[in-house]
C-alpha cells in the first residue's frame, strides 16, 4: 500500500476516534483505553530495542562467531522461533520464579516479546548481510581492511537498507503481541478492553475503539518505517552500481 494511502488511513482513524469521543457510548471508555495504550506503547518501544539488539548480536554470532557462539546463537533463534510467544511469556512468568528468578510483569513483557521478535529479526539481519554483493567484501579486502572495519563501514551500512522493510513487519508483530501481556496481569490496552467489557458488556463500542487505537499505533510504525526506507533507499539508489 502506498504511503499516501497509509497516511489517509491514519488521519481517518484518528478523526474517527475523535468523532466517537463526542458520543456518550464511546467517550466513557476512551480515557481508560488511552491509559492502557500508553503502557502498550512503552512495552512496544522497549521490546523493539531489545529485539534489534538481540537480532544483530545473534546474527553476527551465527555468521562470524567461533563455534560455541554460533551454536548459542542458533539455539536461541530456534527456541524462540519454534515455541509460541505466549508460551515464552508464561514460561518467564510462571516457571522462572520456581528457579528463584522473579521478574516484574513489565520486565517479563519486554524480555519475552523482545527475545521472541529478536529471534525472527536475527534471520532478517543475516539475510540482509548476505545480500550484500561479494565484490564489496573483496574490494574491502583489497584495501586491506580488517574484518571488523569491513563489517562496520562497508557491509552493515548497505545491509541496513535491505533490513528496513522486514523490520517494519516485525515491529508490527511485536506491537500486536503486546496484547498477550494482558494475560500476565499488565493493564495494557487489551487488558483494559477485556476488563471494561466484562463489567459493562458494551462489546461493540469498546472493541471498535480498541481496534482503532491499535490501528493508529501500527500505522505510525508502518509510516515511520516507510519514511526511513525512502530516505535510506535514496542514499543507496544514488549509490547502486550498475
Amino acid at each position: 500500500m502506498g504511503i499516501r494511502t497509509l497516511i489517509v488511513m491514519l488521519v481517518a482513524s484518528i478523526l474517527l476516534i475523535a468523532y466517537l469521543a463526542t458520543r456518550d457510548t464511546y467517550s466513557l471508555f476512551l480515557p481508560g483505553l488511552l491509559q492502557g495504550a500508553v503502557l502498550t506503547a512503552e512495552i512496544t518501544v522497549l521490546g523493539c530495542l531489545l529485539a534489534v539488539a538481540m537480532a544483530v548480536l545473534s546474527a553476527l554470532g551465527k555468521l562470524y562467531g567461533p563455534a560455541p557462539l554460533r551454536w548459542l546463537a542458533n539455539l536461541y533463534i530456534e527456541i524462540f522461533r519454534g515455541t509460541s510467544a505466549l508460551v515464552q511469556l508464561f514460561w518467564l512468568f510462571f516457571v522462572l520464579p520456581q528457579f528463584g528468578v522473579s521478574l516484574e510483569p513489565f520486565a517479563v513483557a519486554v524480555l519475552g516479546l523482545g527475545l521472541n521478535i529478536g529471534a525472527y529479526g536475527a534471520e532478517c539481519v543475516r539475510g540482509a548481510i548476505q545480500s550484500v554483493a561479494r565484490g564489496q567484501w573483496e574490494a574491502a579486502t583489497a584495501l586491506n581492511m580488517t574484518r571488523l572495519q569491513m563489517l562496520r563501514r562497508i557491509i552493515l551500512p548497505q545491509a541496513f537498507v535491505a533490513m528496513i522493510p522486514p523490520w517494519g513487519n516485525l515491529f508490527i508483530e511485536l506491537l500486536k503481541s503486546t496484547a498477550l501481556v494482558s494475560l500476565i496481569t499488565l493493564s495494557d490496552l487489551a487488558f483494559k478492553a477485556q476488563q471494561m467489557n466484562q463489567t459493562t458488556m458494551k462489546t461493540i463500542p469498546i472493541f471498535t475503539l480498541v481496534l482503532l487505537i491499535y490501528l493508529v499505533l501500527s500505522l505510525l510504525i508502518t509510516i515511520g518505517m516507510r519514511l526511513l526506507e525512502q530516505r535510506a533507499a535514496k542514499g543507496l539508489a544514488r549509490g547502486r552500481t550498475a
Binding site: 500500500m1 488511513m9 508490527i172 506491537l175 500486536k176 503481541s177 503486546t178 496484547a179 498477550l180 494482558s182 487489551a190 478492553a193 477485556q194 467489557n197 458488556m201 462489546t203 461493540i204 472493541f207 480498541v210 481496534l211 491499535y214 490501528l215 501500527s218 500505522l219 508502518t222
Partner: peptide, 26 residues
C-alpha cells in the same frame, strides 16, 4: 479489500478473538 486486509493484519489476534467471542451474543 486491501484496506480490510491491512486492518486485520494491523490489529492483535487476541483482540479479534475477544471481539468475535463477545460480539456475537449481542
Amino acid at each position: 479489500i486491501s484496506v480490510l486486509v491491512e486492518l486485520i493484519r494491523s490489529t492483535p489476534l487476541l483482540i479479534q478473538i475477544f471481539f468475535l467471542y463477545f460480539v456475537f451474543p449481542s
